[in-house]
């Protein structure tokens, strides 16, 4: 909650200008923190991030690593319409379309790369997707990898999906 804090800007009195007493007061504050944290380490609010994570709340869950959804028949729901790439402010999505000759939905992503090192996790791709094919609900927070390639999500990595019901939202998916 954002609050307005009124700052008291009165001139310093003599005791404060001598500074010693004020430093001592500050010293007591830091010392108190030191001893409280020394004897009750459990109360330190800092968490050991990669090992311990806090459960993501509300919308934060929808701003995690991307995935591509699948249809019931196991094909990617994505039809390579490029709208996510168009909406992406970080230019981190690279798509190359391929053509199915058999299926009614003739277009599919032959290449679908998300460069996580450029991604700003804004969720615009999810907003833009007309097929409900891309989602950012894996609850995996990207970052901290040892190799550059690991920041590069290819189509197959994106298609490693969470279990869930395949939805038929999206115009082109009506045909599938």
């Amino acid at each position: 909650m954002i609050e307005i804090k009124k700052v008291n800007n009165r001139p310093l009195n003599l005791l404060e200008r001598i500074y010693v007493w004020e430093i001592f007061k500050g010293f007591l504050v830091t010392a108190r923190h030191f001893f409280v944290n020394l004897f009750c380490p459990g109360k330190i609010i800092t968490i050991q991030y990669p090992e311990i994570t806090r459960p993501l709340e509300h919308a934060a869950k929808r701003r995690t690593r991307h995935r591509l959804k699948m249809r019931a028949n196991g094909t990617p729901k994505c039809v390579a319409c490029f709208l996510c790439a168009t909406a992406c402010p970080a230019f981190c999505i690279h798509i190359e379309a391929g053509e199915f000759t058999s299926s009614q939905v003739e277009k599919y992503p032959a290449v679908f790369d998300v460069d996580l090192s450029r991604c700003v996790m804004c969720g615009m791709c999810v907003e833009a997707c007309p097929e409900d094919a891309i989602a950012m609900d894996t609850e995996v927070i990207p970052g901290g990898v040892l190799k550059r390639e690991d920041m590069y999500l290819t189509r197959n990595k994106l298609l490693q999906n969470m279990p869930g019901d395949p939805s038929i939202k999206g115009a082109a998916n009506r045909l599938a």
């Binding site: 319409c81 709208l83 045909l175």
Partner: peptide, 11 residues
Amino acid sequence: HPVDCPICDQA
């Protein structure tokens, strides 16, 4: 009209 603009090149 099928409204399959996502896979339509005319879009």
